[in-house]
Nucleic acid binder design. Structure first.
Lengths: 350, 350
DNA sequence: CTGAAAGCGCTAACAT
DNA sequence: ATGTTAGCGCTTTCAG
């Protein structure tokens, strides 16, 4: 079904059909009607691809992700929300790192899509980002390149601090940290930095034994947890700096016969999928992920409208959500004041 | 950054560059190296758009959705999972019903993308689907057209039955149903049919007063709930057949001073976002949404490989997840046997 | 081994 | 008012 089929069927040239499609000047009313009829009859719609090759404006904005997992999916909801009501459409491109080359998926995806297909892009958790794309780009949670490109991210440093402070406030002193090898994302190290800062402020020395990094493999994480909990002087609390390890931590602890939070308090990070939730519910530091998506798109729309966004670097606060997985250390102080925190599951809808 | 820049910089023709890009025969090794170098240096990647206009194979599969909301976002995770490990890439197109014309977004999106850009598509909750696209299509949770197109859906009829049976098993007799006007999706009416069937099997007559439909507007839903709970002989339980109304039901009930589940048992449907969750946690009939996405993509990949999918119409079972929002009716029987059900929050990870 | 040229579906000058 | 033509970035014959 191409524009030529329509043209032939209507007995006009493709140019005329194109004019009708784009409400251009200089087509007789009768012709317009006839062409419209044929279009309707054939159920024709112009090819986005051909059109964007020709025009350079597509009214499509792209969200470029490595993969669709809980984090990016959450972000997409926010992005979609920001687009609703505008006359832009949304294309999500999840390349999964295909199509070899080691210049980073970020640049490759952008090269592949920008200029054609999309008018601008939101890049989700890019690692390298020395991008010089023709079209506007906003990065969410980038590792580097913060100078060149407008960004939206969450306050991971503060998040790490909040989590650790909470545990300290409960009287804990031996607090484990479970993160990831620091190579790719910046967020991990920042959470660890928050952890260290909180300990330092409380005058608690960091015990290197209590700080672990585990890879993306789940068994790797479980081993690390097991190690931590097998220490002669085991931690009374663990700050697991990503969702996977938080869940694993609770599971391993319980498998080892430890009660959570009776014997071990656990605090996590990110949007832990509730469907994965074990008993008791996990205390987490939550990032406003949907909001990040929404803001990123809003910034992009500003830029597409030719305006400079109000701020080029937005950092959103994180917040602690306390649930049943943390408890005051026996002999420590009581529950800390949580005026600023939400207490789940008794959380009113916003 | 086009192929011509590369060609000029390397001192060859665009044809040669193209050959290098596609590993074609007949380019001198030295030339290949030079071109590769330039490509690397310039960070060039061929335009997906231009390429797909020329070739008809793109190795991209499309998921076409009206909008990205909790349901489709969940589905996308499953779809992405199915694509991981294949050499296909994923493009999600969320048009939001833009670009007028009343031939249904489904056909329009397909027209716009298929043939070019994507090799095949998964259509999410299409309403009309008399599609005759050139490329393979799988529909998830379609309203009609089940005959023509391969489909994946959930067993909404059985879901409605399960939910209602559960309440009946708890001793409830006055069970309200809160659905949506039946115009668009088929799933709503099916859930209602399940409700009616369960009541019929239990010999409980349907009280028309207890069956309500409310639109998509939240205030609409709240009014409906309020009406239900203001009846002289109010229901002791409500089956809210979609996520929005389930949450609203609990909130309105509590606002009216009713305890859940003490005074009113509530059971919902779908993937109620836990972040919206109130106290107590909501009992739901869960659909295997991610799984639907995964299966749809797997079917599509089969078709793209030229094979006929094992089944053209897959219907997945729904399951009850019992939480704290339902209670036995005083004077009724005890808790029914839930051997087949999961009991949250004490749910082991799968 | 390399390049010139045609054409994918479409739009925008430029004829007619 | 309509049609002809060139060209968007790319791949693919087909000559050189």
């Amino acid at each position: 079904m191409t524009i030529r089929h329509v043209a032939e069927r209507a007995g006009v040239s493709v140019a005329t059909v194109s004019k009708v499609l784009n409400d251009r000047y200089g087509v007789a009313a009768a012709t317009v009607d006839r062409v419209r009829e044929v279009i309707e009859e054939l159920g024709y719609e112009s090819s986005l691809v051909a059109r964007s090759l020709r025009n350079h404006r597509t009214n499509v904005i792209g969200v470029l992700v490595w993969d669709i997992e809980p984090f990016s999916a959450e972000l997409l909801k926010g992005a979609a929300g920001a687009i609703r009501g505008t006359d832009y459409e949304l294309v999500v491109y999840a390349g999964g790192g295909k199509g070899s080359g080691r210049l980073g998926w970020e640049r490759r995806y952008l090269s592949r899509l920008s200029g054609t297909l999309i008018d601008g892009a939101v890049m989700v958790t890019p690692t390298v980002l020395d991008v010089d794309s023709g079209s506007p780009v906003v990065a969410v949670d980038p590792h580097s390149g913060r100078e060149t490109v407008p960004t939206v991210d969450a306050d991971n440093l503060q998040g790490g601090r909040i989590a650790t402070d909470h545990l300290i406030g409960l009287g804990h002193r031996r607090i484990g940290f479970l993160g990831r090898p620091p190579r790719d994302l910046e967020s991990g190290p920042l959470r660890e930095a928050g952890y260290r800062a909180a300990l330092a402020d409380a005058g608690i020395p960091v015990d290197p034994q209590l700080v672990r990094a585990a890879g993306y493999d789940e068994s790797d994480v479980r081993n690390a947890v097991h190690d931590l909990l097998s220490l002669p002087e085991r931690p009374t609390a663990i700050f697991a700096a990503n969702d996977v390890s938080a869940i694993s931590t609770m599971e391993v602890a319980m498998a080892m016969g430890l009660r959570v939070p009776g014997d071990l308090s656990v605090i996590g990070f990110d949007n832990v999928p509730e469907s994965m939730m074990t008993e008791p519910a996990l205390t987490t530091v939550e990032q406003p992920i949907q909001l990040m998506g929404r803001l990123a798109v809003e910034m992009l729309l500003e830029m597409l409208a030719g305006r400079e966004p109000a701020q080029r670097h937005v950092r959103l606060p994180t917040r602690l959500v306390t649930r049943a997985s943390c408890a005051p250390l026996p002999g420590g102080p009581g529950l800390p004041d949580l005026a600023d925190d939400a207490r789940l599951p008794v959380q009113p809808r916003s």
